[in-house]
Amino acid sequence: MKRPSRDAREAVLGSVRSALAGGQRGSTDSIPREYSGKRHVESLPDLFRERVAEYRAEVRTTDSSEAPEAVLGALEAAAARRVVVPEGFPARWSEPVAERHDAFGDSPRLSTAALENADAVLTTCTVGIATTGTMVLDHGPGQGRRALTLLPDTHVCLVAASRIVDDVPAALAELDPTGPMTFISGPSATSDIELERVEGVHGPRNLHVVVVGDV
């Protein structure tokens, strides 16, 4: 493979350095961070549910014992038969799915065609953000590689209430930026036609969120 050119590197860095050499740029070292580190929120799960629903995602609330029912309900609503259940997804929630649906994992690795053929995918999430109605996937166990939550048309995401934080700063503090991550706020959407929001373009067109209260 062709190696990057050292000449260009030195030229760009040299040009940046000489641009910076002349100026008196004042003190730019202290960054004010006077924005709220925390938002005052009465109930994080309530706000999270409300905000997710505003993106026209389907939201269900349940407790741990009834979570499987909620998952089945979401899959039924989406008329999903073939369901991808990534390795590491909690067995207590996926077992009823396996009984009623054609459930399969990603090991051995699913072909693109097989993934494209799946109706739904079932995942957990690493952090939920209440103020923005966002789920963050770090694609670890229970979430699978990024393509799993991209090709099937329905994504059912289980969010543990205890994993919901108030806003973006708290979420980023929980995340380890060494691997890929996906922030999901509602189903895929576009505003490219007259700036009118339309849900459902390339990513999953149906997003079902199940908030599990006692986990």
């Binding site: 990024r146 060494t178 890929p180 996906t182 922030f183 706020s185 509602g186 895929s188």
Partner: peptide, 25 residues
């Protein structure tokens, strides 16, 4: 960015990646 840009609290998808990840992408 999302509030200024599309006027949403958060845009539907934000992707973060670091170099090459074995088995993903």
């Amino acid at each position: 960015l999302p509030r200024s840009s599309t006027g949403e609290r958060m845009n539907p998808y934000t992707s973060v990646w670091n170099g090459v990840t074995e088995g993903d992408g």
